[in-house]
Design a protein around this nucleic acid. Structure first.
Length: 492
RNA sequence: GGCGUCGUGGCAGAGUGGUUAUGCAGCGGCCUGCAAAGCCGUGGACGGCGGUUCGAUUCCGCCCGACGCCUCCA
């Protein structure tokens, strides 16, 4: 490991730091270790595709950092108490904790389908109330917090010198924005809630300021510092959290500790629908499971979504459409076809960093996690493998295949059995699937007989009929026929 | 009003001061009963106007266009 605490060895990892607006070499507090906190979900509903992007992007970041030998401490929180949760629970007539529990379980299912690994820690706000209260007390002692007339405890924004450093705006500039509501309760309109006085019937915890609950931003300060220390390396989340959430986290954390809170801030771009930001308030959003349900095989469509997300750079906007899904499907099919063509190949345990492809792959990823370029490297591997196979150099091809699988795995891709992906079969085969497979195989036999007899018309009719059902037949040179899924484009 | 991001070939989407991104689609060829897959070859691009430069899609300025943030949001 380098003495200067850079990560990545020969491929010094460069990270775009939202705080400075530039790409910087990633230098961590501890040599060879990376502490990263990602703002996770507020669990009052099913995760949408924007959440999928955060999950997949930072899962890939963590996988990559680990692949270059870093010991990563990955924390992703769950906010399980806030206004939206309380409202939704009331609407449903269930308790907040029951509601939260339900959607946490659903989120874990979604993650699985997207091949997102669990973080090392997944702290929930309601389990850190003591730490939150202690943090607010520190802020109060230092003069950064005050109790308002209404009973809420607020953060005194004017007292924190660096306020606005992340969003690149001064308090006064923010005020000119004019959409800040006037509130007699606040010393300054930008002051925000640290502790909210509870209303009857709401979840509440005892505190020095009376019973209440944490405000929105404080739990991330408390939990991240509790899990990773008062200073840590990377804090990440969606672009929309930059202001005010992350700005406020900095204010809370640095005012309480007097130390630099986070060295690198990473923000992923929005997921868009028809080139507009997808958000619940706009009503133009898809849940992850909605998309997952559009395919019989949940892992297959999950990987397609993952591929689609990684095929654009994490900071760019990502436009979701039927075509982006189809593109991802076609690309993944090409990757899986070469694996299937090579037979079953075990994944290499470690990358041979000296290989041409690994060098290109790592160079791309070290440059602020350029996954589109890394994926392009995967495809040049595919071409090479196919060339080798065309020339019957099977052993060489299989060697490269195991490298392909290794590199793809760094992106969380190609972890399924090729056949399962190509045929769209799930791991625990249903009766329905078995019946379908048998039906297809019967037709293939029937066609083989026709071909043997030279009845091309019949053979082609069977093939054409199956294709209309989305089943593509492929004959190899030895009289064997295989099949795979091929969506026929019906024009929407 | 303030701040910011972006504008690449038919579509998606990287990147670069002068040389092939990549995937899908197209075209020609090999292979195939015909296909499919694969391979080989190939056409096609950098919003507009100026400037810097031997040379700009890449740097600078202006303009136009799209989007976002300043309010809950990944």
């Amino acid at each position: 490991m380098n003495k200067d605490n850079t990560i990545g060895g020969d491929f010094a990892v460069q990270v775009y730091n939202s705080l400075t607006g530039t790409k910087e070499a990633l230098k961590t507090l501890l040599p060879g270790e990376v502490s990263i906190y990602v703002c996770g979900m507020t669990v009052y509903d099913y995760c949408h595709l924007g959440h999928a992007r955060v999950l997949v992007v930072f899962d890939s970041v963590v996988r990559y950092l680990r692949s270059v030998g870093a010991k990563v401490h990955y924390v992703r929180n769950i906010t399980d108490i806030d206004d939206k949760i309380i409202n939704r629970a009331n609407e449903n007539g269930e308790t907040c904790s029951a509601l939260a529990e339900r959607f946490i379980a659903a989120m874990h299912e979604d993650e699985k389908a997207l091949n997102v690994l669990p973080p090392d820690m997944e702290p929930q706000a309601t389990m850190f109330i003591d730490d939150i209260i202690a943090l607010i007390e520190r802020l109060e002692k230092a003069g950064y917090a005050y109790k308002s007339r209404s009973g809420d405890v607020l953060y005194r924004v004017r007292h924190f010198e660096g306020y606005g450093q992340l969003s690149g705006r001064s308090i006064d500039e923010l005020l000119v924005g004019a959409r800040v509501e006037l509130n007699v309760d606040k010393e300054d309109p930008l002051d925000f809630v640290l502790w909210k006085k509870s209303k009857p019937g709401e979840p509440q915890w005892a505190s020095p300021w009376g019973s209440g609950r944490p405000g929105w931003h404080i739990e991330c300060s408390a939990m991240s510092m509790k899990c990773l220390g008062e200073s840590f390396d990377i804090h990440a989340g969606g672009m929309d959290l930059k202001f005010p959430h992350h700005e406020n986290e900095i204010a809370q954390s640095e005012a309480s500790t007097g130390r630099k809170f986070v060295n690198y801030w990473m923000h992923n771009g929005y997921l868009q629908i028809d080139s507009e930001k997808m958000s619940k308030s706009e009503g133009n959003f898809y849940t992850i499971r909605e998309i997952l349900d559009s395919d019989a095989n949940i892992l297959r469509i999950g990987e397609v979504i993952r591929f689609m997300i990684l095929s654009s750079h994490y900071r760019s906007p990502l436009n979701f459409s039927k075509q982006s899904i189809d593109n991802a499907k076609a690309s993944l099919t090409r990757l899986y076809l070469v694996l299937s063509r090579s037979g079953d190949v075990a994944m290499r345990k470690e990358s041979s960093c000296d290989s041409r492809y690994s060098v290109l792959f790592n160079t791309a990823m070290a440059d602020d996690f350029n996954t589109p370029e890394a994926i392009a490297v995967l495809f040049s591997l595919v071409r090479e493998i196919n060339r080798l196979l065309d020339n019957n150099l099977v052993n060489d091809a299989r060697e490269l295949c195991s490298e392909l699988k290794y590199l793809a795995n760094v992106l969380g891709l190609l972890s399924q059995e090729p056949i399962m992906f190509l045929k769209g079969l799930s791991a625990e085969t249903s009766n329905n699937e078995t019946a379908t497979v048998e039906w297809i195989e019967r037709l293939i036999e029937e066609r083989a007989t026709a071909r043997m007899a030279g009845d091309w018309a019949k053979a082609d009719r069977i093939r054409g009929d199956l294709l209309e059902q989305g089943i593509l037949l492929e004959d190899d040179g030895n009289g064997q026929t295989s099949w795979r899924l091929e969506e026929v484009y019906t024009g929407e």
